[in-house]
Amino acid sequence: MIPAAFDYVAPTTVDSAVRALAEAGDEAKVIAGGQSLLPVLRMRLAAPTKLIDLGRIPEMRGVRDGGDHLVIGAMTTHYDVQRDPLVAEHAELIKLATDTVADPQVRHRGTFGGSLAHADPAGDLLAPALALDARFIVSGMDGRRTVSAADFFVDFFTTALHQAEILVEVHVPKHTGWTAHYEKFQRVAQAWSIVGVAATVRAEAGKIAEARIALTNMASVPIRATAVEDALIGKQATAENIKSAAEHAAEGTSPTTDGNADPAYRQHLARVLTSRALTAAAGV
């Protein structure tokens, strides 16, 4: 399988990439790690006339300390996110979810920002970004703007990015001292999540002081399980309290039907996996 022909440019700065994208118009497509896009092009599900490769823009790679938040460059590979000490210390949820993405070869090429901008509802990094209230820094011809995680994901494979905008970096508020777990249900290793649950909690004297939970693939966009969070806060971190809070996990969800599962099954999974994720995150 060979993609349809396209022109290719590999700019070396964000500004020149934005300019190239603006000049190329609607038929252009940005390529990050290419681990989702290249299979799509090979199967000819898309045929952009121009690819703008972000792979040679050094300023878009790496993780740095931004004070009260981490700055994760959009072109940082999953492999680098997995091994970054700042991510492990201040946003463990992202590290744990990244560990489950695809397989080692894909994690060497695939990128944090590419995954988010692709906005596949089964993608594993969307829910952690939402749970941690990440902010998306987007660059366009008029400069940069910030989009909240709640506003960034609009629909299936659709984000708040305009045609000539590029996701440059993601600011993740530090959650130092929080414990986390990403629980994922998949048919076989390396398959997409049928449902995933991203959970992180902060405990104080055996009680859950704060909880952040978001669901993968339970709607066209990632969603927060706010009813579960509300049911947990102030409670002792016990198996019983977690199980009863997790019963709320499917509230407000609108999962899809596909070859793997129907909505009722996904809602069942959401409750079970939320319970498992919280049990692991709280160390119960």
Binding site: Y8, A10, G34, L38, R42, D53, G55, Y79, Q105, R109
Partner: peptide
């Protein structure tokens, strides 16, 4: 590719420049 495993069906030759 530069010391890391990749699936060469999911990399463009131009990306290996």
């Amino acid at each position: 590719l530069d010391g890391h495993s990749v699936k060469s069906c999911s990399v463009l030759a131009v990306q290996a420049h």
